[in-house]
């Protein structure tokens, strides 16, 4: 018997963002609880408890899935990508950058899931049209943006929309000082 008479915790090997973590978890632990509270990867959010909002979307073997409905123990042997795994070598991904520049990140709470859904879409479809983008994001509820800036951001990330109308800013003070 485990803690409080519950079933024993089990050693679960999770591969998250390419890094392996061996953690002791109750079998009832969802993947969302495991990444947020055990691994401290709090970028994955929970909004609805039970698969209605998409805020907890992660990629499992590249496919967007809901961490709040996934058992952590069933994620063993599979590659999990959370929002913390999108940036590479200290640089944010084109999707993250586009969401930022387009104003798609208002409160930001739904956006880690949204960006992972967008990332999965662009991995299988380089230049999705607007309808395809809407379809791919239909499982991620956003309450701030009305989706417009999100759709625009995915178009920017896929090189289909330019941000040229945006003012270019001078170099930062830090960059100026370095010169």
């Amino acid at each position: 018997m485990g803690v409080f008479g519950r079933p024993e915790k089990q050693l679960v090997a999770l591969t998250v963002n390419g890094e392996r973590h061996d953690v002791a978890l109750e079998p009832r632990a969802t993947l969302l609880e495991a990444v947020r509270y055990t691994l401290g990867l709090t970028g994955s959010k929970q909004g609805c408890d039970k698969g209605d909002c998409g805020a907890c979307t992660v990629l499992i073997d590249g496919k967007p899935m809901l961490a709040c409905l996934s058992l952590a123990i069933e994620a063993q042997g599979r590659a999990v990508t959370t929002i913390e795994g999108l940036a590479k070598d200290g640089k944010v991904s084109p999707v993250q950058d586009a969401f930022d520049v387009c104003g798609a990140l208002q409160c930001g709470f739904c956006q880690s899931g949204m960006m992972l859904s967008a990332t999965a879409l662009l991995a299988k479809c380089e230049k999705p049209n607007r309808e395809q983008i809407k379809d791919a994001l239909a499982g991620n509820l956003c309450r701030c943006t009305g989706y417009t800036q999100i759709l625009n951001a995915v178009e920017v990330a896929s090189g289909q929309r330019s941000v040229a109308e945006r003012d270019e800013r001078p170099t930062t003070q830090a960059q100026a000082a370095a010169k």
Binding site: R6, P7, Q10, E26, P27, R28, A29, T30, L32, E33, Q46, D49, K50, C68, L71, I73, E74
Partner: peptide, 12 residues
């Protein structure tokens, strides 16, 4: 968040 109740898990 809503929790899952305890259970034993098997993966045959």
């Amino acid at each position: 968040m809503l929790t899952l109740p305890p259970f034993e898990y098997h993966a045959p």
